[in-house]
Amino acid sequence: MKPVLMCRDVVVDFDGFRALQGVDLVVYPHEVRFLIGPNGAGKTTLLDVICGRTRATDGRVLFFSHDITQRPEYEIVQIGIARKFQSPSIFPFLTVWENMELAMRQDRRLRSVLRAKLTGEEKEMMAAQLEKIGLLDERHRLAGSLSHGQKQWLEIGMQLIQRPQLLLLDEPIAGMSAAERERTGEWLHEMAEHCAVIIVEHDMDFVRRYSKQVTVMHEGKVLCEGSMDEVQQNERVIDVYLGRGKNACCASGM
């Protein structure tokens, strides 16, 4: 099977601080890949490189056969990589419906947006998606007036309707209740039917429950890869986590 994403020896140098020191990562279609590791390991930086927010100093990022290493963010999104950030970032002064309209897969160049009108088919698709995330009745409300949880769901709906082939998530369950975590976990596997997912997550219970493949990062490098059980047995991983015994959020789970 052809990989969705291949990172080859990716280096990021922030004025002398090497946040990534040669990272290799291969992700296959329909995979849910968890990135874990102590703070400062470079997980978020790696996501930033993939989605074009941070430029790689060296190395290459391939998305299918496209070299996306030097492409601007909006082009990377257009070819199928979506990114969800830590805080819910919806547009507060647009309605739920309008938020979905912008997120929908479409030609995003100015001249087609100028003429764009929703077709019946698109409306049905948007309504179906809203129904799924439980926001259909709220569609005329301003997104800013939704509850925190509803905002999270709106954002997830926006990711789904974008139909990405690779979805990047940065701590998606931060600040969620237990029930919401569960729904998110289920949603993750639903997402994986349509696309590959890379998730940065600190909550080890969540990782254990929903992961198949885990990549452990440490000091800008990939330490090891494997299932959660394999990873937990790995000597070097134990050293990294236990050696930093006070790093409670991660160590407690290991």
Partner: peptide, 11 residues
């Protein structure tokens, strides 16, 4: 309201 977010929607 959120220029960066717009960029990450592909505009």
């Amino acid at each position: 309201d959120a220029e960066n977010r717009v960029r990450f929607l592909g505009f």
